[in-house]
């Protein structure tokens, strides 16, 4: 079991994402967007979506810093293990309410407005459910459990990325955190097939674009 979830599963998920993204981009480029529902409801969305997105981007940054940078590097920089853990929890406690409140508002409007409910696809519900599981288990970690992941999850993630997975590191990890991790990889796997693809459409070139874009009729892009 441990071997399946912490050796095989991550690579399956990451492979699906790596193959799925270009395939979808090539074969269904028209479906590649954020599936906005602001047309139906705007007030709750402006609050909910902004809070959720700012929170989730910050928490993504936190995950990158916490999981991918080895503890030894922090030690070299003079940051003690305790301080590192403290900073991680405080940052998490600051960001988690943003994510959870935003997500709550977004789910509320999606469930309660008939126009919105009937235009929500199965993929939307799936993405929403996975994001919910991630946010709830994450919130449980920063507010209640306070399990240090720097000796378990973080080195395991690094071992996965280094292509020499060490599943034994995950053996002592509590169940909720295991769910958080497995759920995270599942998110990566479904990402190419749901609205989540819009993550990869961040319009980074927009600030340098010409004010009026001209294109020729049969210009192939």
């Amino acid at each position: 079991m441990n071997t399946f979830f912490y050796v095989i599963y991550p690579y399956v998920c990451l492979s699906i994402m790596a193959c799925g993204l270009p395939l979808r981009y090539l074969y269904a480029p028209g479906q590649w967007n954020a599936r906005s529902s602001q047309f139906f409801e705007r007030r709750l969305l402006l609050w909910g979506s902004t809070m959720f997105h700012v929170g989730i981007l910050l928490s993504l940054g936190g995950h990158v810093v916490g999981l991918l940078i080895p503890s030894s590097l922090f030690a070299k920089m003079g940051i003690s293990h305790e301080l590192h853990v403290r900073v991680a929890f405080v940052a998490g406690q600051a960001v988690a309410p943003l994510v959870l409140t935003g997500l709550g508002l977004l789910i509320y409007r999606r469930l309660c407005l008939p126009t919105l409910r009937c235009t929500t696809s199965a993929g939307d519900w799936l993405a929403l459910a996975l994001v919910c599981v991630a946010a709830l288990t994450g919130g449980y970690q920063v507010f209640v459990a306070h399990v240090s992941a720097f000796d378990t999850v973080a080195p395991w993630v690094q071992s996965v990325l280094a292509l020499s997975p060490q599943p034994e590191l995950m053996r002592e990890v509590p169940l909720f955190l295991q769910i958080h991790v497995i759920n995270g990889f599942t998110l990566a796997a479904v990402l190419p097939f749901t609205r989540l693809v819009h993550i990869f459409s961040a319009p980074v070139t927009y600030p340098v674009a010409a004010p009026v874009l001209y294109r020729q009729r049969y210009e192939h892009l």
Binding site: S201, P203, Y206, V212, L213, Y214, R215, Q216, R217
Partner: peptide, 15 residues
């Protein structure tokens, strides 16, 4: 509309 499109999807045809 063209100037506001972050994705560069709206364009004015050259011809």
């Amino acid at each position: 509309c063209v100037a506001s499109c972050p994705s560069g999807a709206i364009y004015k045809r050259d011809e």
